[in-house]
């Protein structure tokens, strides 16, 4: 008989904490075990005994002793409502971190980074900024209302700009693409874009037109 083994790429982790950020968004914090990662990577998250998993960017820092993901509950979704019902002490299934939306560490000291996100697309940037606190960055966050400025106090004052499209309580009223069109663009910076494709498509066009070289434009659409 074949001797069963433990699946090398999967860990079963205890849920340590759940931080409710809005009515529909929350951060799950769970045991990291031996899973190392590079900020910007993602994991597949599941619940034991449920066959499906979902990919989420890691929200926590590389050297944080636990791992976190930022989840927005999709009403019609299959997994996110199930994650939303979990309580501390329950178990989650974590598949090893992978992904290429990471920063080139050679540029950490010498380059300025501009992170542009819509909604929960901010998660990889949160991980990068918490992992490399000395990084020269600014972050544009496209959200509908200011309550979606998830844990904005985590970012250095003045470096986080909430672009709110449906209320005026953010730092800028309008979409991130409006912000880019109305403000000067640093053509020497390295730009990272994460979120829905429509935002990325438009922002990419604006930045390219302004003179940012394609090799300095990195993007990851939701998948």
């Amino acid at each position: 008989m074949i001797k069963p083994s433990v699946e090398k790429n999967v860990r079963i982790s205890n849920l340590i904490d759940i931080r409710k950020l809005t009515n529909s968004a929350f951060v799950l914090r769970f045991e990291k075990h031996d899973l190392s990662f590079t900020a910007g990577q993602h994991i597949a998250l599941g619940i034991p005994d449920i066959i499906d998993t979902r990919e989420y960017s890691i929200y926590s820092a590389e050297n944080d002793e636990a791992m976190e993901v930022l989840i927005k509950e999709v009403e019609e979704g299959f997994m996110s409502p199930k994650f939303g019902k979990l309580v501390v002490g329950q178990k989650v299934k974590v598949m090893k971190p992978v992904g290429y939306f990471t920063i080139n560490k050679d540029y950490l000291q010498s380059k300025r980074f501009v992170f542009i996100a819509s909604g929960t697309g901010i998660a990889p940037f949160h991980s990068i900024i918490k992992s490399y606190p000395d990084i020269n960055y600014s972050i544009l966050h496209g959200i509908r209302t200011s309550e979606e400025a998830y844990e904005r106090n985590e970012y250095t004052a003045g470096k986080y700009i909430a672009c709110t499209s449906r209320d005026k309580n953010g730092d800028f009223h309008g979409r991130v693409t409006d912000y880019l069109q109305q403000n000067s663009i640093d053509t020497q910076a390295i730009y990272y874009l994460c979120g829905n494709y429509e935002m990325i498509d438009e922002a990419y066009g604006i930045l390219e037109k302004a003179g940012v070289k394609p090799e300095n434009l990195k993007a990851e659409v939701y998948f």
């Binding site: 290429y100 090799e215 659409v221 998948f223």
Partner: peptide
Amino acid sequence: DDKVLIRMNRQHGMSE
């Protein structure tokens, strides 16, 4: 096309 490659999440552009 670079933008289509982004939408496809191909992790590279035409220059690469």
